[in-house]
Design a protein around this nucleic acid. Structure first.
Lengths: 236, 236
DNA sequence: GGGTTGGTTCGACCCAGACCGAACCATCTT
DNA sequence: AAGATGGTTCGGTCTGGGTCGAACCAACCC
């Protein structure tokens, strides 16, 4: 059982409170320092360093030294996909249990980054709206822009934010663990997120994966994506 | 970190030798009894029962009692997808380490089931051949039959083995951990596998995920899929 | 009924590994 | 040079959970 042996190692790495908290934080897509990750995981610096060494040894994370800082990040999109699928099963398949919702949880549920695209109620709402406007068709395992969608992309300027690298899937549905609906991943998802970020419509809430609307985002996002912000801001 | 909490639980469940061996075995797609799983995992019946209780409690597996036998199986396609992505990262991203290849490993690498479709050199060869014959186009995250492909499906009789349920993706690439290339999953992959099984071209090797060619399979599979069997039988 | 086999529950044992503090190294500042 | 901050390494502690055997329950066979 060669494959199983490595799967055990992988599971054991994720199956620890502190390490899982670090990986979840890194799923925000940003590189974080060892001290930040120690604080997020709620462990001492020495423990954090130990954990990060293991994660790096298994090539789940990479790190770059910048001066005296070590910036850690998810090693590859493949690892991100794996964590994504873990979170989906964790959220949907596991028996429900009592979990008090913190303020932070509420922020995450409103909007967050999922490695390199937008998730939460905002991400799902944008996706739904694009489908209703027939800009996009999404199936369980893939998606495609319509002609109207192509035009929309050009007109809005999002096209400029798209990476041109061909190997990644252009549009991929990503099951949202909090909403239990799909949002857009792949290059298109990444392009939409970066477009919102570049135009200062959205800003990361520092130290977390959560994202918040700026004043201009409040104005421009509902206009561009034709969504009703008030409905999703005030949801449960 | 509500999502992270459940992810920890999930990782911890997979991150155990015995449980991972059981899950890997169940990824063969067949239901197995508790005693069979105990033997596969190399633990006592009591230990196995304990583990299976935990897996069932987390809804990663389901079981049906038939008489005095408990038949366990993977709970859902979502769980299968998650394990699939774990195995891919385990096989491809983790640093290589010395792992002697057992006879059983060689069998698995030749041909095996991956939940409900065909994997290993045989699965990959069929996929490659269909792409070369322009029956199929496959991208990183999706796939489509060509018109020729549709005709091929009808002519071969595989179309009859296809489930008609619409919710599942018709054709999905699944990264093969042993071959590091794609093979066909989704309803199409499931249809091809069941077609080979129904016609007695392939047979499961009992108690494992491994699959072997029957005499008629030796004759018919190369003909239908236009592949060179000798090349993949004798590979490393 | 008695015997056999599949499966679960319980109690006891034991070890991998998560954790911390202290010491240490490296980088930047003053 | 001295101090401050980020990060790693090392040794020692302790606990969660994986393990088994024995006892027990349930289904099938004679």
């Amino acid at each position: 059982m060669e494959a199983a042996t490595n799967m055990v190692e992988l599971g054991a790495l994720v199956g620890d409170r502190a390490r899982a908290a670090m990986l979840a934080a890194l799923m925000g897509g940003q590189a974080l320092t060892a001290t930040e990750l120690a604080s997020i995981a709620g462990v001492s610096k020495s423990t954090a360093s130990d954990h990060l060494g293991k994660l790096e040894g298994a090539r789940l994370v990479r790190f770059d030294k910048l001066g005296r800082f070590s910036y850690y990040r998810i090693a590859s999109p493949l690892v991100a996909r794996m964590l994504e699928s873990l979170m989906v099963v964790a959220a949907i398949e596991l028996p429900p249990r009592f979990c008090p919702q913190s303020a932070h949880d509420r922020q995450l549920r409103f909007a967050r980054t999922c490695y390199d695209h937008l998730a939460g109620r905002l991400g799902v709402a944008i996706t739904q709206s694009m489908i209703e406007r027939k800009l996009l068709a999404l199936s369980d395992d893939g998606g495609e822009l319509t002609e109207r969608g192509e035009a929309f992309l050009q007109a809005s300027g999002i096209a400029l934010s798209l990476q041109t690298s061909g190997s990644r899937c252009f549009c991929r549905p990503c099951l949202d663990w909090s909403e239990r609906q799909f949002h857009i991943a792949g290059r298109l998802g990444s392009g939409i997120w970066h477009h919102c970020l570049d135009n200062d419509w959205l800003a990361r809430i520092k130290g977390t994966r959560a994202v918040d609307l700026t004043a201009s985002g409040h104005r421009e996002i509902p206009r561009l994506f034709e969504i009703d912000l008030s409905a999703i801001v005030n949801a449960t």
